[in-house]
Simulated assay, not measured.
Amino acid sequence: MTKPILKNKERIDQLFSTDVKIIQNKDVFSYSVDSVLLSRFPKIPSKGLVVDLCSGNGAVGLFAATQTKAKIVEIELQERLADMGRRSIELNQLENQVTMVEDNLSNLLDHVPRSGVDLILCNPPYFKASVHSKKNLSPHYLLARHEVATNLEDICAVSQQALKSNGRLALVHRPERFMEIIDTLKKYKLAPKRLQFVYPKQNKEANMLLVEAIKDGSLEGLKILPPLIVHKDNGEYTDQVAAMYFGTDAQPQAYMYVLECADGSLYTGYTTNLKKRLKTHNAGKGAKYTKSRLPVKLLYWEAFNHKNAAMKAEKRFKQKKRAEKLAYIKSQTDESQ
């Protein structure tokens, strides 16, 4: 991979189940779980032409690129995001496969042949634009989240024109717009064929909807897939989602740990390397609290598939009283035996 030129506040994130790296900037745009789910939802054609509409910084199309030899055209209206996408394409050395086009999606047929696209991926603005909209002050997020520059109707209309007969459109959207989505797809002869509701946690309401439709397909045979749960109760990804992020053979990415200090007190932290962190603590360099209470020993730890989950577990554990902490450790240790 080539070394990219990062601009102010930019960082590089990686989907660890692949080698793909994405240039991100939280002030402008950052891909989230919806982009990952969309890139893994439809069957990606092995060859042909794939289009990523409303591509943002190009994450969905780049994630899809690892699954196919098809040419991928990404369409993004915002100059800043399109620039980030182009540099991510260069970073991953995918210039021969992926192209970023800075344009309104209504001009899609200026860049791809009519009735020539095998698959369209789209992570569109979710919210209708109105005087009552809770609009983000950032113009980048305003366009990404609200139907200002495009809307569901425009997306379905241009998809109908660009897709081959039996070509497919895959969308991620909001469940509360389910009926509107189905009606609009049918209006443009895009037959819904696969549908999956996504839930942030068990027993929570769905907050995302994945839909796949086929151009000129029969309106019969819609499949409702099993619910997809994103997080376990402890905040880490479920096994299905973790596999998308880290691969099926992924090792733990982070740990919440509890130390017993020389004076009997407890210290809680998180780390990505338990052995190294314990050694650092006992060298007097781990934390101000443990430095005066050496030596320390590892009393308990939990493994997580991403750092944020370990940090949340650390925060929850620190809120417990000492007796509650010891009772929790005992209950978890007893369960594992």
Rank of each mutant, 00 (worst) to 15 (best):
K9V: 00
Q14R: 08
Q14C: 07
K21P: 07
I23T: 09
Y31N: 06
Y31P: 08
V33N: 13
S35L: 06
V36A: 11
I44H: 09
G48M: 00
D52R: 01
V60I: 15
A64D: 13
L77I: 04
A82M: 01
D83N: 15
I89Q: 02
Q97L: 11
L109H: 00
R114W: 01
Y126I: 08
F127W: 05
N136F: 05
Y141K: 08
R145A: 07
E153V: 10
Q161I: 02
L163C: 07
R168V: 02
E176Y: 14
L185N: 13
L190G: 11
P192L: 02
V198F: 14
K204C: 06
E205D: 14
L209K: 01
E220F: 09
G221N: 03
K232A: 09
K232T: 10
D233P: 07
E236T: 11
D239T: 11
D239M: 08
F246C: 10
V258Y: 00
L259P: 12
C261L: 10
G264F: 09
T272K: 11
N282W: 10
Y289K: 12
L294N: 03
L294Q: 03
P295Q: 12
V296W: 01
A310F: 04
M311K: 13
M311A: 13
E314Q: 14
K320I: 08
I329V: 15
I329R: 09
I329N: 09
S336F: 15
S336P: 00
